[in-house]
Design a protein around this nucleic acid. Sequence first.
DNA 1: CTGGTCTCCTGATCGC
DNA 2: TGCGATCAGGAGACCA
Length: 277
Amino acid sequence: MPELPEVESIRRTLEPRLLGARVFAAALLRPDILSAPRSEPHASRRRRLLVDGRITLLRRHGKQLAILTHDERACIVRLGMSGSLRWSPDTPPRNPSLHVHCVWTLDSGRGHIWFADPRRFGGLTSLRGNSLPAHWAALGPDALTVTGSHLDRTLTRSARAVKAALLDQRVLAGVGNIYADEALFLAKVPPHALCDTLSPADWESLAHAVRTVLVQAVDAGGSTLRDYRDGEGNAGRYQAHHRVYGRAGLPCPTCRAALSSGLLAQRMTVWCSVCQG
DNA sequence: CTGGTCTCCTGATCGC
DNA sequence: TGCGATCAGGAGACCA
């Protein structure tokens, strides 16, 4: 389930493969995974999939990754929960269980990139490169740069549970179920605490915890629970450092009490009822 | 407007 | 061993 650290790891591993490469061809095997904002004029599928463009930049905001070309086209890749974006020297294996939906061929023998997504919660969005900032303005700030004052300002009058707010991409972009629980544990804030009961100091410590946990996870190449791989096919290593996620009933790493678990905002949630009061 | 719930989808896992 | 039920979850639709 790719969150910010996994998407950033994909971005970093793909960048050297893609920068300067020209898109020779694109095969869209499942047309319904490609969408466009309502405001964008219709363009051909080839245009929308960057064919004949020279890749100039790979940008990430939260969990979204955009591929940009020299002629101001952009293709956003959203990985959903089971999506992957991989580079390989050859075309991907023709294994139906991979659920490969789009394959791009780069010219001059620079290989292929492919988007696969078994559960199809992800997809591609084509848009003009110069409308990317406006598109991303609908999201909150990238979670790697989130501040306590932003969270305080945005959420201080909200009656929602703090974990539900952390998962809301319009509040901050990039946090999913794993890193929400990890950040709440680090900040010693209970996931079910209501936003309007938290102090500015709480928001400060939560913002700090979010940034800390994400930086650590990026440094470890993200978390591989089952399927996640970076752009080169490597697994992440941060799962070994999870303090609470996936550890329901096991001892708290700080106080050794059994970790609590339950459903919050439709997500499995794990926390320490002692440390997170 | 706000917050809670439902829904999409497939593969892994569980219980009988 | 086999097979149906259950679970996981990002994000948009939908509803009170």
